[in-house]
Each structure stands twice: as C-alpha cells, then as structure tokens.
Lab assay of single mutants.
Amino acid sequence: MAAGGDHGSPDSYRSPLASRYASPEMCFVFSDRYKFRTWRQLWLWLAEAEQTLGLPITDEQIQEMKSNLENIDFKMAAEEEKRLRHDVMAHVHTFGHCCPKAAGIIHLGATSCYVGDNTDLIILRNALDLLLPKLARVISRLADFAKERASLPTLGFTHFQPAQLTTVGKRCCLWIQDLCMDLQNLKRVRDDLRFRGVKGTTGTQASFLQLFEGDDHKVEQLDKMVTEKAGFKRAFIITGQTYTRKVDIEVLSVLASLGASVHKICTDIRLLANLKEMEEPFEKQQIGSSAMPYKRNPMRSERCCSLARHLMTLVMDPLQTASVQWFERTLDDSANRRICLAEAFLTADTILNTLQNISEGLVVYPKVIERRIRQELPFMATENIIMAMVKAGGSRQDCHEKIRVLSQQAASVVKQEGGDNDLIERIQVDAYFSPIHSQLDHLLDPSSFTGRASQQVQRFLEEEVYPLLKPYESVMKVKAELCL
C-alpha cells in the first residue's frame, strides 16, 4: 500500500493539533497551500530580480507567473513527485505547466533550498508574528487579574506546605514575570531571523556568478533584492546548502521555554482548584465526569500541561538535527523538520489560546482563602504575639514557653481530632496574655502579614508589564474561544 493518505478522510490519521486544537490561522501558515504558494512567490521574486539585473526574462513571463501564483494543481504535483521522487522539481514542473512561456526560467540558477529553506524562514517569521500578540493578550488578562487582587491576602506555599502570606495578585505576578520573559525572547528570536537568500547549491553562489558572467556586484544585488522582497532586513552571508540548523534550535528553545512557563502556571491553577481557592472557567453544560456528576475538573489547565510537556520535548529534535548536518548538509534534517517545526508552533498556539481562555474567566473564592488563612495564621502570628507581650512588660522566655504549650495543644486538636485551630481562643482565655487581649485582632490582621506584596504588584505592572504590552494595544480586544 502506498504511503500517505487522504487526510480529510475519517479513515486516515490526522494530527489532533490540526484537527482538534490549533487555530485556523496557525494551521494555514503550515498548510501545503501556504507552503507551495510561497515557493511560487519566491520563484517570481527571483525572476523579477534577475530581470532587473539584466537576464533575458520578459515582462510577459513575469506576468504569467504572477497570474498563476494561486493556480496550484495539487493532484498534478503529487503525481509528479511520485514520478520524480523530488518535491521541488515536482512543483517546478507543475508551475511550468500553467506558465508555459515562463517554464524555462522558473528556478533559474537556484537549488531546492532556495524555495525550501527560504519558505521555512518566512513561515517561522509569520508563525512567530501570530504567537506574539496571543502571548501579549494572556499577559494582559493576567495583569488585569493581578491588579484587581493585588491586596487580597492568601496563604503562600513553599514545598506545598503553608508559608508566609502573600497576595493573590502577587502570586499571579510570578506567572506574568515568566511570560514577559517569554514574550521578550519570542520577539528577540523573531527579529534575529535572517533570510537564507540566493546562495546556490553549497552556499557559494557559483551558479549565479556564472549567470551574471562573473559580476560579483550583481550577485550581491540579486541576494539583497530577493531578501528585501521577502520582507527581511538581512540575509546570511555564510550558508551551506541550507541555512544553519542552529536557527531551528533557537526558535524551538524559546517555544519550549514558553511551554515550561505555561505548565507551571496551569499546575498552580490545578492545585488551587483542589484547594477550592480558584477555578478555571466551567461552562453551564460542561460535564466533569461521566460517573461523578459533582466533579469540576480543571480540564483546560490539564490540557495545557499535557501539550506543554510535548512542546518542551520537541527542542531535542533540532538539537540532534543540527549535530548531524555533515559538511554542507545531509538530508537527516528533512523529514524531522517537516514534523517538529509545525508541531512546535501548533502546540504553542494551542496552549496560548487555551491559557487566554482560562485567564479571561478565572474565578476566585475569597471566603475559602480566608478560612485557610484562619487555619494557619495563628501559628504564624506567634512571633508577633511574643513581641507584643514583651512590649507590655512580659518575659520573652516565659511567653515563648506559654505559646509553645498552647500551640501544641491547638495542633493536637487540628491533627488528632480534625478540629479547627483554636490557638487564639486559648490565648484569649489565658490570664497571662490579658495585657494584649485587646491587640489580638490587630495582630491577626492578614494584611499585616503580606509585606509589600501589593506595592510590588503595582510597581511591576507599571514599570515592566504595561510598557512591554504597549506595541500590542491594537490587538488586545480579541477574545479566545474554545470549541473543545
């Protein structure tokens, strides 16, 4: 049975990233139509530049190519590739079939990587351009969430054990800070992308030097003109047959890092959902379990974690691919890159769409948070109580021993009897502590235990987050809708 299948058929496997999760716009960027249309555009740009620099290419040939950029006979191309065992030459023939007058000058002087690699770089750039505003929107939604809850005390956790208090907004800023680093890295790697350009079979530009009869300047002009037509500021000066596969490492490393950030955020949300302090959106008709109707599973956060793990592992592909590119190139890269580049971007696209949807509907339960604080705060307040007693004339050592005994009794009630923490009640009825009984409410005010959390939130948002989001103001209103 021949390899390949009808990918629109229910009898043929289709990647869930495309069929179930990723956005239509990201799927289109990695589609065959987008790819092969870009090949034709690159052939047109090459012909236009070659004509401008004096090669015998007519206006009629150029116009014929322009008129057929979208006229792609995919069936013919597939048949040609089956016959020739070469995808680029299959599309040269297919393009030439609908451009008979231009057929002889299509791909003039070029090698397969002229269309293959340059198209990949265009796709990487455009895919990054799709991700950047999506990530900015996630940051914006979380920034709104953090600002609104900047002063809401909550129990902090280290080692997932109760620690000092923080605020809900401050905790959210930990998430935002990681995503801001990801946004900066995505922008950097996007701006650092260079075009492969017009380089020939081993990167020496020998074929173009021959076409222009040894004119170095025209060869350099050709490279520059096509690079500018493709919208790049610069091209690699040095290439082998391909652009260095280190570029793929750079791009997928940034995406993998984004995956790590999203995994951490969504894990926190899942843990908070278990504590009943916070939940992701839950639709009115949504079913959490087929057997347990009360369940409210954090399905979206779980999906993000599941896909983020996949995204983090994909960076190993370009690392290994770059390491086995012998001399000017081997074909070890080809099949692998067809999979890992598309999957990385479709996965990143999915987790950003999902995280935006989550961040637009996060639900906080202040009463649950308050109750958990009441359970733990008495123990945390013991040092403040000791200091207040010393100020009232008591002995630190005597007070410490009193607190120690009462704390152990209260802990026994919590752990052995399943009761509430009654340390404060014990202190309130103990005559030894009568000098500070009137101060206990103040000493137990949760806001006095959150330090500068709310001020940190305000400063972080104003100095770091809002300036970073400013270039994306025009796209901030787009909502994230999930079908599944």
Rank of each mutant, 00 (worst) to 15 (best):
A3C: 14
G8A: 15
S9Q: 13
P10V: 15
P10I: 15
R14A: 12
S15G: 15
S23L: 05
M26L: 08
V29G: 05
S31E: 07
D32M: 10
Y34I: 07
F36H: 15
W39Y: 15
W45P: 02
E50H: 08
E50T: 09
E50Q: 05
T52Q: 13
L53S: 09
L53I: 14
L53N: 07
P56C: 09
I57R: 01
Q61C: 09
E64N: 08
F74S: 12
L84T: 05
F95L: 07
G96D: 08
H97I: 14
C98R: 10
C99W: 01
P100S: 12
I105L: 10
I105V: 13
I105W: 08
I106T: 08
H107C: 04
A110V: 04
D120C: 06
I122C: 08
L132D: 12
L132Q: 14
P133W: 14
K134Q: 15
R137S: 15
V138K: 06
S140R: 12
S140A: 13
A146D: 00
E148K: 09
R149A: 08
P153T: 06
T154N: 05
T154C: 08
T166C: 08
C173Y: 01
L174A: 12
I176V: 12
L179E: 01
C180Q: 07
C180V: 12
D182A: 04
Q184H: 10
L186C: 15
L186Y: 04
V189T: 14
V189W: 06
K199M: 02
T202S: 13
G203C: 01
Q205D: 02
F208V: 06
F212Y: 07
E213S: 11
M225I: 08
F232T: 01
F232D: 00
K233T: 08
K233Y: 06
R234M: 14
A235R: 08
F236E: 06
Y243V: 15
T244R: 00
R245L: 01
D248T: 03
E250F: 10
V254H: 14
S261D: 05
S261V: 04
I269Y: 04
L272W: 08
E280L: 00
K284N: 13
I287H: 06
S290M: 01
A291M: 02
Y294L: 02
K295G: 00
M299V: 10
C304G: 13
C304R: 01
C305Q: 04
L314R: 09
Q320H: 07
T321Q: 09
S323N: 04
V324K: 04
L331F: 00
D333Y: 03
D333H: 04
S334I: 02
S334M: 04
S334P: 01
A335T: 11
C340A: 14
E343V: 04
A344V: 03
T347I: 11
A348P: 03
I351K: 02
I351A: 10
I351V: 11
T354G: 15
V363C: 05
I369Q: 07
I369R: 04
E370R: 13
R372M: 05
R372E: 04
R372L: 02
E376F: 06
E376S: 01
E376R: 03
P378G: 04
E383N: 03
N384P: 12
I386S: 05
V390P: 05
K391L: 05
C399K: 03
K402R: 14
K402W: 01
K402Y: 07
R404Q: 09
L406G: 06
S407C: 09
Q408I: 09
Q409H: 08
V413C: 09
V413Q: 13
K415N: 05
G418K: 01
G418E: 01
N421Y: 06
N421W: 00
I424W: 12
I424Q: 14
V429W: 09
Y432N: 07
P435F: 05
S438L: 13
S438D: 07
Q439V: 12
Q439M: 11
L444H: 05
L444G: 03
L444T: 06
D445H: 11
S447I: 13
F449H: 06
F449T: 02
R452K: 06
Q455R: 12
Q458A: 13
Q458C: 11
F460H: 06
E462W: 13
E462A: 10
E463D: 10
P467M: 11
P471Q: 15
S474F: 12
K477C: 11
V478L: 15
K479V: 14
A480G: 15
